[in-house]
Structures are given as structure tokens and as C-alpha cells.
Amino acid sequence: MLKLKKISVHYGTAEAVRDISINVEEKDVISVIGANGAGKSTILKAVSGLIPVSSGEIEFDGKRIDGLPVNKIVSLGLVQVPEGRKLFPYMNVMSNIKLGAYLRKDKADIKSDLAKVFELFPRLKERRAQNAGSLSGGEQQMLAIARALMAKPRLLMMDEPSLGLAPIIIDNLSKAIKEINRSGISVLLVEQNAGLVMNVSEKCYVVEVGKVVLEGDMKDLMKNDSVKRAFLG
């Protein structure tokens, strides 16, 4: 459903990623791994339309989406949980979640989605009146995911959701990702945490200095040296 065809992205004149091709099919959980600065976030930003691609094409459901404004891309169901969460720190949990549904007009559905999100993350329901900035790291990550789910994604992109979380919280995270995937949402996961990636996804791309150097099944890849490099940073 999502196809990146040989995309390159530049910041000014500096090339960040080059000729990246990635495929995500319906119901997939696909991972992208790579060391710091490899270009993982850049790839997701390009898909969301936050930065333009300098060459190549991005297709969603067979239609080109590169060049579309961010809000159009979100409304197609291509939603991102960004690196560092990017919550609204001085707004409460409820307001953050509601802003996830900013583009939606189906009031009744929004309500039932809200109930589902609270079912997935009961903790957020308890904390709904608390400011996002005062949540713990794990709660903030849940909130970032909850907010994205309220946009009714068909494909959810997550950028290093495990960053800064304790192992036990990362376990919860992988359960949540599987649950989200079971509900029919495809997932494109950018990660450096090996455990999480092996737990939730079968197929994986390895990025090194802006290029895909390997792709394939998780189990085969784990034996490979560049995979180890990617995970160890």
C-alpha cells in the first residue's frame, strides 16, 4: 500500500538519504533499523510531507503523494508518531487526544475510537486531565500513539517509540503495536531496539548512511554484521 521508489532527500545541499526503496503491504509490520544519523527519521518525514523529496516517488494506494501538503497526507490515513513524541506539553491528555482527530468530521466514530484508545491505554484515561508535559516517558509515548490512532490511520508510522523507555514499558509497547496491527492497521516502525523489532515485525530494512544496505526476514538478518552495527549504533 505504501511504496517508496528510490527517494532521495536533501537538507540544503547535504544529502541525507539516497535512492531509498521501501514497500509496506496491507497488514504488514515493517521495520527500518539503522544507527544514529542513518536517515531513518528523514525517511518518515519525507513520507509525511514534512520535507520534500529531491528525487524518486512515494505512492500510497497506487497514487503519488510526494509533494502533497502534510494535512492531505494525514487525511489519506498515513499518520506518524514522531521521534520525541512532539506532544502539546501544556495541554491536557484529553485535548492532545482530541487534536489527533483534527481532520475528522464523523463525530460518532470519533467517540467510539476514543473509547477504543482508552481501552488500549487505560492509564491515559486516568490521567486525562493532566498536562501532557507532566506525564512519565512511557505515558507520553502512549499518548503520542493514542493521538495518532485518533486520526484513523490505515498505516501508522512510528519513529523510535522505545526511546528512553524501561524494558518493561517496551514490552507493553510491543503488545500495543501488535494489538494495533491486529485491528487492521499497517505499521512502519523505525527502531534501534532489537528486542522490540524482533518481537513485532517479520520484515526489516537496514539503513546505513542514507542507504538501504539490506532487507529481508528478521530471523535471517539477525545473523548479519551490518544488522548488529545498526542495533548497537
Partner: peptide
């Protein structure tokens, strides 16, 4: 209002706001 909440959101986290589809 939605636009008012969008204003608050942008003032607190611009990229986060854009990613919610706020124009």
C-alpha cells in the same frame, strides 16, 4: 473552537501540530 485549539497546538509544538493535519 477547533481553530482555537489548533492555535494553542501550533504555539506549543509546531511539527506535532502539522502531523495532526493542522493547516
Amino acid at each position: 473552537t477547533k481553530t482555537g485549539q489548533a492555535m494553542l497546538a501550533i504555539s506549543q509544538e509546531r511539527e506535532g501540530a502539522a502531523l495532526q493535519g493542522i493547516n
